[in-house]
Design a protein around this nucleic acid. Structure first.
Length: 544
RNA sequence: UGCUCAAUGGUGUAAUGGUAGCACUACAGAUUCUGGUUCUGUCUGUCUGGGUUCGAGUCCUGGUUGAGCAACCA
């Protein structure tokens, strides 16, 4: 069969063009730059697959870099979980870097900017600075400190770093253009003072910390990143990214990179991931966790990597999903159904099936001898005997799903009904319902049926066709279990687009807890599809 | 009413000036020891006006619509 060539996404096209033109001497280096202030979610995974995927495909390297420039929000605890999640997804990074590794170099660079008259210390309040920034349609106005003498800027900035200036009292700003139509050029803040929180790695060594715009591009540059791939909202930052790098590369090269004056990293942007019936905002997720609206970051309803893992998603399925949705510059919304389709596809051929009854009603097989039991053998996965079999105890009294019996059924219903069609008990005998018993309220308590002793699965007599096959569990050998059936977290397609409090949009039925009977025990963390009901994943022992 | 980016079936994505294709969803039929799976089929698309060209989803131009940008966040 001829293999259909998969078309390249636009980033891959750029990379191949760069490769063909010998840009950066044909070197490919990417980075995944999470901020260690929360858990990785499926939106990050899209970026991870891009960053690591490009490096893998073009024989380059992808490094992990923690963007830890804001000690107020960041913590080491997140570093570990981020590393764990990336490893679980199956990606291998080259080096682990931290933006904080470059604090000294960035500081030196800031000093250079000051000496070149490209930066100044502003001592206005945040409000004043914001006010002077102008609006997208009106130019900003210059700060009264904009033309401070270089020596004074130098002295003040050094004083800021020595901890002599109170947090919030001064910032270092790039002196660019207060009237630029790109707001990011209106003298962006390069450094702010943070003394209230120690940094998770550098402790109290620094009292000034670089802003994203002054740290990210430089970090890329110091590391030798060639393709700095990020999401679309950074598109307007790109000119500033380029501006800062221009100041010390090319004709202004001052030896800060082993790759020489011609090397430069280039930022490229792709569309971020949105999925229906969920949210992709760290802030909102944190709120759900903190307020106990979900059971934690790894609640199976959460779009976090650890949540998906507990939900039973495999790394391969998640990566396949990313392949399917692709990378463009169109901001859209992916149907949650596609994600679910991908995991079903993945588990279909690999995950052993099990019988479990969630809404049990007793079935008595009236012509099966009292006290008799037998052991039947079922394939773990139908049609794949090589993937193993399991034993199921069979007897006169079974649990079946309440919904599999209807006292009065029309022709459309082809499961159990008195005098109705023959029905196959999964991997077992063929039965026919004869009647039922009800309590005082009219609820069915027992279903009666007769079985055909010659119809056992796998035997000659069992080859007869039935329209329906139902699940069952033998009453005496069944184990009790708790099943938590999860549905979409939100009741509306796009919670972020709705007015009002997003918490009011949660799906009240996103978690249904059922006590079940189940035949076997399964190790935690294994996907465990229950025929007819759906895919389940055995979880850690429940604790309340 | 500034700057940047985008616009292909319901959704996502391909076609790189030369037959608008694929996947998901929905629906229909067949198959089936899960009303699952599988298979087959159907529905539905180039935002809009002009231009360039033998030929435009693709290039140019005007418009429309949507998104992002005014944190001492990243």
């Amino acid at each position: 069969m001829e293999e259909q060539e998969k078309s390249l996404n636009f980033i891959e096209q750029i990379v191949e063009k760069d490769l063909a033109e010998g840009v950066n001497n044909g070197r490919i280096q990417t980075r995944f730059p999470p901020e260690p202030n929360g858990y990785l979610h499926i939106g990050h995974v899209k970026a991870i697959c891009m960053d690591f995927g490009i490096a893998e495909k073009y024989h380059g390297v992808c490094n992990l870099r923690f963007d830890d420039t804001n000690p107020v929000k960041e913590d080491t605890e997140y570093v570990d979980t981020i590393e764990r999640d990336i490893a679980w997804l199956g990606f291998k990074w080259g080096q682990i870097y931290y933006a904080s590794d470059y604090f000294q170099q960035l500081y030196d660079l800031a000093i250079m900017f000051i000496k070149q008259g490209k930066a100044y210390v502003d001592e206005q309040t945040a409000e004043q600075i914001a006010e002077q920034k102008g609006t997208p349609t009106e130019p900003g106005v210059a700060s009264p400190y904009r033309d401070r003498p270089i020596e004074e800027n130098l002295r003040l900035f050094e004083s800021m770093q020595r901890g002599e200036i109170e947090e919030g009292k001064m910032v270092l700003r790039a002196k660019i253009d207060m009237a630029n139509p790109n707001m990011h050029f209106r003298d962006p803040i390069m450094y702010r003072i943070i003394t209230s929180h120690p940094h998770h790695r550098t402790g109290r060594k620094w009292n000034v910390y670089p802003m994203y715009d002054f740290a990210h591009g430089q970090s890329d540059y110091f590391e030798g990143v060639t393709h700095s791939i990020c999401t679309l909202e950074f598109e307007v930052h790109r000119p500033l990214y380029d501006y800062f790098i221009d100041q010390f590369s090319g004709p202004n090269f001052c030896g800060l990179s082993p790759y020489g004056p011609d090397y430069r990293p280039k930022q490229r942007e792709f569309n971020r991931l949105n999925i229906t019936y969920t949210v992709m905002s760290k802030r909102k997720m944190l709120q759900l966790v903190k307020e106990g609206l979900v059971a934690g970051w790894d609640d199976p309803r959460m779009p976090t990597v650890c949540g998906l893992r507990r939900r039973g998603y495999t790394p391969q399925a998640i990566r396949t999903f990313m392949d399917k949705i692709g990378y463009t510059k169109v901001e859209g919304m992916i149907d949650q159904g596609l994600l679910e389709h991908t995991i079903r596809e993945d588990l279909k051929e690999t995950a052993p099936r099990v019988c479990a009854i969630f809404d049990p009603v007793k079935l008595v097989i009236t012509n099966y001898p009292e006290n008799q039991t037998e052991t039947l053998v079922a394939e773990n996965i139908d049609g794949h005997p090589e993937l193993g079999t399991r034993e199921m105890k069979f007897g006169r009294e079974l649990w079946i799903e309440r919904g599999d019996f209807l006292e009065e059924a029309d022709n459309k219903f082809y499961r159990l009904s008195p005098g109705g069609r023959e029905v196959r008990l999964k991997s077992s005998y063929i039965i026919q319902a004869t009647g039922c018993e009800k309590d005082a309220n009219g609820n069915i308590t027992t279903v009666y049926a007769t079985y055909d002793p010659d119809s056992k699965s796998g035997t000659e007599g069992g080859n007869r066709k039935t329209k329906a096959t139902i699940n069952w569990v033998e009453c005496n050998s069944a184990l009790d279990a708790e099943a938590r059936l999860y549905d979409r977290l939100f009741a509306v397609e796009n919670p972020s687009a709705e007015e009002g409090d997003f918490r009011d949009l949660l799906n009240p039925d996103s978690l249904i807890v059922k006590c079940t009977s189940d035949g076997e025990r399964y190790p935690a963390g294994e996907p465990l599809p229950v025929a007819q009901t759906g895919l389940l994943c055995s979880g850690p022992r429940h604790h309340r």
